[in-house]
Computed example of a mutant assay.
Amino acid sequence: MVQDKTIPSRLFDALNYTLLAVVGIVTLLPFVHVIAGSFTTSAEMAMKKFILIPTVFSLDAYRYIFSTSKIFVAMATSVGVATLGTAFSMLLTSLLGYALARRDLDGRRVLMFLVVFTMLFNGGLIPTFLVVREVGLIDTYAALVVPLAINAFNLIILKNFFQNIPEGLEESAKIDGCNDFGILFRIVLPLSLPAIATISLFYAVTYWNTYLPAILYINDAGKWPIQVLLRQIVILASGFEGDPSLDSEVPPPDQAVKMAVIVVATLPILLVYPFLQKHFAKGALLGSVKG
């Protein structure tokens, strides 16, 4: 039988709920402000520094953003890069993570040291650009994927998750005649869905937010992802010289456009997250406990 909570316990719970509610509201308010600001007019944005409910509802900012057909091309580019890039990264990360999770792998410690080393040191911006140029990836979509294909942090999380799978399952599969690839794709990966969902979300967010690689490696404006194009739209709406092809008859509402750009850039990932939320915490936790 559950005993009634004592008064100090109830006060502690009330304090916790109050504190969490305040933190939740403080966290939510900036999002509400950004969304409300994207649906208001420039005049109201100029008069009010903080808006939660727009007095005059306006779609001018979104009308301005979507007044160029390039926005749809850039959106398709970002969706394609995020989808194919995530699949490619998960394939490579799973293969390498499974290999490093095998305790009988020769040179396992050396390979693991090299992986961790890349988290602390890297070649730098210019050497990386020179490598990408020399292999012929400039002005190709592959330049947005290949340099980011394997993230060391994601690899370590997935490797640790694979190590939590009982070795008896792999031994039973080998007795049944299954090879290493069969064990990985038929047993290990289906049992690792929480980690797969978590790492996939990490990679998807990385590819969706691709900005600097696109600035460095993509010279053709027709191949820009959504983040770079939205930057150009903000520059043009702010009165600075931007891409001439983005000129529109719709007057640019400066501050509202900036708010709308944030919404457009963030909304797709926010729509994906709820489908992976149930796996997210479990995958990140289990993959970080055992080394």
Score class of each variant (00 low, 15 high):
Gln3Asn: 11
Pro8Cys: 01
Ser9Phe: 01
Arg10His: 04
Leu11Phe: 12
Ala14His: 14
Leu15Phe: 15
Leu15Arg: 13
Asn16Met: 06
Tyr17Thr: 06
Thr18Arg: 03
Leu20Phe: 15
Leu29Gly: 07
Leu29Phe: 01
Val32Trp: 07
His33Cys: 11
Gly37Val: 05
Gly37Tyr: 12
Phe39Thr: 09
Thr40Met: 02
Thr41Cys: 06
Thr41Ser: 12
Ala46Asp: 15
Ala46Gln: 12
Met47Val: 14
Met47Cys: 03
Leu52Arg: 04
Ile53Asn: 13
Ile53Arg: 12
Thr55Asp: 13
Thr55His: 11
Phe57Gln: 07
Phe57Arg: 07
Leu59Gly: 03
Tyr64Pro: 04
Tyr64His: 01
Tyr64Met: 07
Ile71Asn: 11
Ile71Leu: 14
Ala74Tyr: 10
Met75Arg: 00
Ala76Val: 01
Thr77Lys: 00
Ser78Val: 13
Val79Pro: 07
Gly80Ala: 02
Thr83Trp: 06
Ala87Ser: 00
Leu92Arg: 03
Leu92Ala: 08
Ser94Ala: 15
Leu95Ser: 02
Gly97Ser: 12
Tyr98Gly: 03
Leu100Cys: 12
Gly107Lys: 10
Arg108Ala: 03
Arg108Lys: 13
Phe113Met: 11
Val116Gly: 01
Leu120Asn: 04
Gly123Leu: 09
Gly124Asp: 14
Pro127Gly: 10
Pro127Gln: 00
Val135Thr: 07
Val135Gly: 04
Thr140Trp: 06
Tyr141Trp: 08
Leu144Gly: 11
Val146Ile: 15
Pro147His: 04
Ala149His: 01
Ile150Arg: 04
Phe153Asn: 02
Leu155Lys: 05
Phe161Asp: 06
Phe162Glu: 13
Asn164Ser: 15
Ile165Gly: 11
Glu170Pro: 03
Ser172Ile: 03
Lys174Ser: 02
Lys174Trp: 01
Asp176Pro: 14
Asp176Tyr: 07
Arg186Pro: 12
Pro190Arg: 05
Leu191Ser: 06
Ser192Asp: 07
Leu193Val: 13
Pro194Gln: 10
Pro194Asp: 07
Ile196Asp: 05
Thr198His: 00
Thr198Phe: 02
Ile199Thr: 02
Ser200Thr: 06
Tyr203Val: 05
Ala204Leu: 13
Thr206Ala: 12
Trp208Thr: 09
Trp208Pro: 09
Pro213Lys: 08
Ala214Leu: 13
Ala214Gln: 12
Leu216Ala: 09
Tyr217Met: 07
Tyr217Val: 05
Asn219Asp: 15
Gly222Tyr: 03
Gly222Val: 04
Trp224Phe: 09
Ile233Cys: 02
Ile233Glu: 04
Gly239Ser: 14
Phe240Ile: 07
Glu241Pro: 05
Asp243Gln: 09
Asp243Ser: 10
Pro244Ser: 01
Ser248Lys: 02
Ser248Arg: 09
Gln255Asp: 08
Gln255Ile: 06
Gln255Asn: 13
Gln255Gly: 04
Val257Thr: 08
Ala265Phe: 00
Ala265Met: 00
Ile269Lys: 04
Pro274Leu: 01
Lys278Ile: 04
His279Arg: 06
Ala281His: 01
Gly287Phe: 00
Val289Asp: 02
Val289Tyr: 04
Val289Phe: 09
Gly291Ile: 04
